[in-house]
């Protein structure tokens, strides 16, 4: 679990609001989705398609692919590689993906 050295509100930095599953999350403009989740008390972003084990961001630099989430309907997005946008919808990924026509 991570906290900010200084909350964005306190430093006059631009703030964005996005949705994570059922939650509304506030983040600093310029944050990656992964950073925004970790600083909002969200520590798990998916479960594996193999054993359903919970996983969370691990390397934060695009190598490990642990932080896969669904962003605005796009599955398998690396949360550590995408910046948050106002109104973004982020969802956890549970197990193998179900594709529908």
């Amino acid at each position: 679990m991570f906290k900010r050295l200084s909350p964005p509100e306190a430093t006059n930095e631009a703030v964005v609001t996005f949705h994570f599953d059922e939650q509304t999350v506030t983040a600093r403009l310029g944050d990656t989705v992964a950073a925004a989740l970790l600083t909002s008390g969200i520590s798990i972003c998916r479960s594996t398609p193999v054993s359903n084990a919970p996983r969370a961001p691990y390397c934060m630099m695009g190598v490990c692919f642990e932080c896969l989430v669904e962003v605005d309907g796009n599955p398998n997005v690396q949360a550590c590689q995408v910046e948050v946008r106002d109104g973004m919808h982020v969802h956890t990924q549970q197990g193998a993906r179900r594709l529908t026509s």
């Binding site: 991570f2 600093r28 600083t39």
Partner: peptide
């Protein structure tokens, strides 16, 4: 990376 990019710490 969390520290540099988001000022986030454990």
């Amino acid at each position: 990376i969390l520290l540099k990019s988001a000022g986030a710490v454990p």
